[in-house]
């Protein structure tokens, strides 16, 4: 049976190897914080980290993921919502409907890992998730805030 390392735990899943990671997370592991938006890796609602790299899980078959690779979902980003990005998101009250926000937060957290002080231009380039409510400006501001405050925030 395929084995996946999700949020620090090795999980065995009984599914066809071409099942996308998104549906394994949501339907086998009950981790529904990672959302289904488009199914073609365009909207980013399904973004998770694989070895720290932001990855759209809806188009990624689990056969392409090695057991050694560390998958982190929104549920595993921090134990209690205390990741600097989550704290900045709370401080600026970023979400509206909230459905895209798991993916936004995962994309933002990964960006800050790679680039602790991103400029607006870099944020514009790197955050390509879709939000239909229009939270983009608050997302941008919250990324700056998280960069500024880090764990101190």
């Amino acid at each position: 049976m395929p084995r996946l390392n999700v949020n620090g735990q090795v999980r065995e899943v009984d599914v066809d190897p071409d099942t996308p990671l998104l549906w394994v997370l949501r339907e086998q592991l009950a981790l529904t914080g990672t959302k289904f938006g488009c199914g073609i890796a365009m909207c980013g609602a399904c973004t998770v980290h694989i070895d720290g790299v932001p990855t759209r899980s809806c188009g990624l078959p689990i056969s392409a993921v090695e057991e050694a690779q560390k998958i982190v979902t929104i549920e595993g980003l921090s134990p209690d919502g205390s990741h600097p990005v989550q704290k900045a998101w709370l401080a600026l009250d970023v979400p509206q409907c909230g459905y895209c926000q798991s993916g936004m937060i995962m994309a933002a957290a990964s960006l800050l890992e790679q680039n602790p002080k991103p400029t607006d231009e870099i944020i514009n380039q790197e955050i390509t998730n879709i939000c239909r409510c229009g939270t983009y400006n608050k997302v941008r501001a919250a990324i700056h805030m998280a960069a500024e405050r880090g764990n101190a925030g």
């Binding site: 009950a30 959302k35 919502g81 979400p95 909230g98 926000q101």
Partner: peptide, 27 residues
């Protein structure tokens, strides 16, 4: 005032319709 519905939207805890799961549920 801050919204009352923000916190669970930041951790994946917020359950939307697409996320529902009941015992024995079919899809």
């Amino acid at each position: 005032l801050p919204r009352l519905d923000t916190k669970d939207k930041l951790t994946g805890k917020q359950i939307y319709g697409a996320d529902l799961n009941f015992p024995g549920m079919l899809n």
